[in-house]
């Protein structure tokens, strides 16, 4: 099976500090792949590099093409989308405008606004708040808006950075339910999480990233029961 996204020997450094050191990973089409690991392991840096926000060494191929010369916007236009940890919403614009701008790559197509109704159906809460500015939303709603905006981009591969960060357990469950639902739309997902149990329970395959290197990888179900994982990330078992 050919991978939709494949990174090989990926290096990212901030000045002299190597944040990501020789990471190789693959995301097959239609699957949920997760990268778990402690704070500061380089997870966010890894996603930023895959998205083209940070310069990196090594090769990244997506849909059979080498991404080296592709800028962030080129990657977005090809369906590679990132929901960053900081959400990066348009704070003083309305919820509806935030969503609409997600469809910016398709602005020249007729009816590019139609997708808005799909997103509202998936996130009824956003429909209720469509006139509010994004900065007035609660943490959970902001995450829904970030997800909704990403869906407007018609992603083929959605990269999610800590979607559960700072959210109440009930909302975390809701968010993960939504993420699982995305797979039925044919969206592949690369999920970066500190909440290792929730991530591994919803994923097909998992990688463990520690101090910039992949220390362990395998099918998510196996990792869930791997003693090295349970001891460190699942609070013993």
């Amino acid at each position: 099976m050919t991978a939709l996204l494949r990174a090989e020997g990926l290096h990212v450094s901030y000045g002299r500090v190597d944040a990501v050191r020789g990471v190789s990973l693959a995301v097959e089409a239609g699957r949920i792949v997760t990268v778990i690991g402690p704070n500061g392991a380089g997870k966010t840096t890894l996603l930023a590099a895959l998205m083209g926000l940070l310069p990196s060494r090594g090769t990244v191929t997506y849909d059979g093409a080498d991404l080296a010369r592709f800028e962030v916007e080129d990657r977005v236009e090809r369906g590679l989308c990132l929901v960053p940890e900081a959400r990066e919403l348009f704070g003083d614009m309305s919820v509806a405008d935030n969503l609409l701008l997600g469809a910016y790559p398709f602005r020249r197509e007729r009816g590019f606004r139609a997708k808005l109704d799909d997103v509202y159906a998936r996130f009824p809460r956003l429909a209720e708040r469509r006139g509010q500015t994004a900065s007035t939303l609660s943490g959970g709603e902001r995450q829904m808006l970030a997800l909704g905006r990403a869906l407007m981009m018609r992603p083929r591969l959605l990269m999610l950075d800590e979607p559960s960060l700072g959210l109440a357990p009930l909302i975390v469950r809701e968010i993960f339910r939504i993420i699982m639902g995305l797979r039925e739309l044919g969206v592949s997902i690369l999920l970066v999480e500190q909440n290792a149990r929730a991530a591994l329970e919803s994923a097909d395959y998992g990688y463990v990233l520690e101090t910039g290197e992949i220390s362990l990888h395998g099918p998510a179900a196996e990792l869930l029961h791997d003693p090295r994982v349970t001891a460190t990330y699942l609070g013993g078992a």
Partner: peptide
């Protein structure tokens, strides 16, 4: 939509790039 894209760039440049606004 072009005007909103300009506002979006002003509000959040990283966010704008992530939705494909150059």
């Amino acid at each position: 939509i072009a005007g909103k894209a300009l506002r979006a760039t002003a509000v959040n440049r990283v966010g704008a790039r992530l939705v494909g606004i150059r």
